[in-house]
Computed example of a mutant assay.
Amino acid sequence: MDEGEQGGNAGVPAPRAGTALLDRRARVIGGLDGRLRDLSPAYFGLVMATGIVSLGAHMMGQPLVARALFLLNVLQYGVLCVLYVLRAVYHPRQFFGDMVSHLRGPGYFTAVAATGVLASQCFVQVDAPRAGFVLWLLAVVLWIGLIYTIFTAFTVKTDKPTLDKGISGGWLLAVVATQSLAVSSALLATHIGQPYRLELNLMALSMWLWGGMLYIWMMSLIFYRYVFFRFSPDDLSPPYWINMGAMAISTLAGSLLILNAPDAPFLVSLLPFLKGFTVFYWATGSWWIPMLLLLGIWRYGFQRFPFQYDPLYWGAVFPLGMYAASTWQMNLAMEFGFLAGMPRIFLHVALFAWLVTFIGMVRSVLRLRRQPSGRV
């Protein structure tokens, strides 16, 4: 055998190795593309949960925790914005198809609520009113675009699911998104001069009232679905905790309106109404906590439903943190005093739930990296 034949034989494995490497890269790229295609519309719940736990820690004198979570939240928000834009560009059919789906569409309201929560963090935690204003304006634009797109599509589409198949606690994310605008508008009003302070307080009041009305509409349907249709463990998805979270953020918005009353005469005239409905929202949210715990015990204890990470679990962390923050603010606004211990307890519960869910998310991401494709 001459050198030419030897050289030729020696070079045979090289193309195979190169082909294998290209195949591996193609599988990795394909897997990442698949995860981008299947990205949950509700993933901004991660920013909502992290933001409200950070705000609660700031309110209750834990600056290191609050600061660390704020910085993490800015990073998470930026990454998710990039991922959502990439999904809209490369997978428009899935992106916009989810938007008009009865079960997945309301998940997009997490983008509005997350932007509003991050704006509130800028106002409260880092005294960055300009950044907060930009985020508040973005939240307004997102709210207008999503709420009319989604509900118009739900109204005019030809093929619609039955009530038991088409509605879930995730629909109440529309209420949370609306109330997040009430909260951020009330906070922005404290950082801006007259006459815009009056307009912002009126906007906050209007959003607070509209969010409450929207909750009544939706909760009536959800409760009817609970009681009169067959209920399986699969139906009790984590967004059902938004039943409580929507009332908690309504309590927070009402408390801020009470605190803003000295700067807006029309709020002074409405103080009895504001205080009454704020307590009403808080009491309703409080009622849901034992009910949701009992349903959780039924799901995981009696029905043996597997407990594994799902991005929807951020929809259960957020209400815990929001209940802590809203109870703290209501205690200040109403000058109760005797509720000071309750929000601290719920803050620690929310921190624990956030940590467990975050660890689950990291483990899920690492596990998916070793797989060619998967849902994120």
Rank of each mutant, 00 (worst) to 15 (best):
L86N: 10
S373F: 02
G97I: 06
R375G: 08
T155M: 14
N331W: 01
R93S: 15
N331K: 04
A204Y: 00
W208C: 11
W208V: 11
V47L: 01
R87C: 10
L198P: 01
E335R: 11
L198K: 02
I150T: 06
G56V: 08
F346E: 06
A186R: 01
P233F: 07
D127L: 14
G30T: 07
L135G: 06
S180P: 04
I242R: 05
Q76I: 00
F338C: 07
G211M: 03
A246S: 15
P265W: 08
G166Q: 04
H91P: 06
E199M: 08
D127I: 08
V356H: 02
G166W: 01
Q62A: 15
L347G: 03
P41T: 06
K275L: 04
A113V: 01
L274D: 07
L188K: 02
L252K: 04
R35V: 08
V47R: 01
Y323K: 01
V124M: 06
V140Q: 13
M361H: 13
V89I: 12
V79Y: 10
A353I: 03
W354A: 10
R299S: 12
W298H: 15
K165Y: 07
P195G: 10
T50K: 05
W143P: 07
G107Q: 09
G166D: 06
P343Q: 08
T284L: 09
F280L: 14
N73G: 10
F277R: 13
A26I: 07
P372E: 13
L320I: 14
T327P: 00
G211N: 08
K160F: 10
Y90P: 04
E199G: 11
P311H: 15
V126L: 12
L142I: 03
T152H: 07
A10F: 11
A66E: 00
L221W: 05
L252I: 01
S373H: 04
A340P: 00
F352Y: 12
A153T: 08
A68G: 03
M219K: 02
L46V: 11
Y196H: 09
F133Y: 09
T50E: 07
I150K: 06
T115Q: 08
I216A: 12
L146S: 14
I147H: 12
S101P: 07
D310R: 11
F302E: 11
D159W: 12
M203S: 06
M361N: 11
H102Y: 11
A17K: 14
V100I: 14
A128H: 08
F277A: 12
I222V: 12
A20I: 08
F305W: 07
L36V: 03
G341T: 00
S120W: 00
G11M: 13
R130V: 14
R299P: 05
T357N: 06
H102E: 09
L205E: 05
R93N: 15
A113K: 02
L267D: 09
L351R: 02
W288H: 05
G321M: 02
F273H: 09
F318A: 10
S120L: 01
A128P: 02
H102A: 13
M244V: 03
R230N: 07
A42S: 09
Y43S: 14
C122N: 10
G285E: 02
H91F: 11
M59T: 00
F280W: 08
L181I: 06
G245W: 00
R67A: 14
V141I: 03
A66C: 03
F352M: 14
L236G: 06
P343F: 05
G285C: 12
P319T: 06
P372R: 11
V117D: 02
W328F: 03
G145D: 03
